[in-house]
Amino acid sequence: MHAFDYHRPATIKEAASLLRKTENSRVLAGGQSLIPTLKFRLSKPSALIDLAGIGELRGIKLDGATLTIGAMTTHSEVASSKDVAIGIPTLARLAAGVGDRQVRNAGTIGGALANNDPAADYPAAVLGIGASVHTNKRVIPADKFFTGTLETALRAGEIITAVAFPLPKRAAYVKFRNPASRFALVGVFVAEGAGAVRVAVTGAAPCVFRVKEMEKRLGEKFAAEAIAKITVPPGTLNSDIHASAEYRSHLITVLAQRAVAAALAGK
């Protein structure tokens, strides 16, 4: 690792001011993605601003039609939260399937979203449910947040504070796990919300994306067979040592049907 300075502010305001004042500084959350990047010297921040001391970034709230999760909430906390189990049970299961126990105990939802790994699980939930990402500056709708491989709409110095999920009528996430990395080889999140169905796919392409044609068919009839013949062309998908683009394309259709069936079964 290159040398860096380290700060542990107690409030969001203080963190924002440190980020503004310290050129080329960077936020540290759970460190599960950032520390490997620093070890490989792929990133050379002058200072890390650790958010761990900021109480207002933690916690889960279920009120009325919205589930709000603080940016520094760990995957384990989401997995074991009663409010998440009541509000969006499939989100608790998604969190329980991220990486392994040790990663879930340290990694956070804010870190996972800011990182926007093309094979990460949370981006599929945020885009699939149509959640909004709250920062210290503004509210960013999911459709505007994920902009490319490891790229988001976040500006320099902007801090994710929370994610707000409107409660879907029903939803399910089905992940085909890469057994070596534990990330999604392909993962499909299907949600039926206020009058509309959304389908988000992770793991298959350079960035999480929606499948509008499936959404339209499912909007007409929320049943697995409605999308059995809809495929995403392999030309837009990733091919690597783990799977060909054709295989990923096949998986999207299969997993989307399984997700619809699971959502209908309330699983």
Binding site: Y6, R8, L28, G31, Q32, I35, P36, K39, L48, D50, A52, S76, D100, R101, Q102, V103, N105, A106
Partner: peptide, 25 residues
């Protein structure tokens, strides 16, 4: 590299990989 778990310790009673955290965390 955060893969093997040989470095697992408890941080406030939670298992974590100590090669993937800064001491200051």
């Amino acid at each position: 590299t955060g893969q093997c778990g040989a470095c697992t310790v408890h941080l406030n009673d939670r298992a974590v990989k100590s090669c993937n955290l800064l001491a200051l965390q």
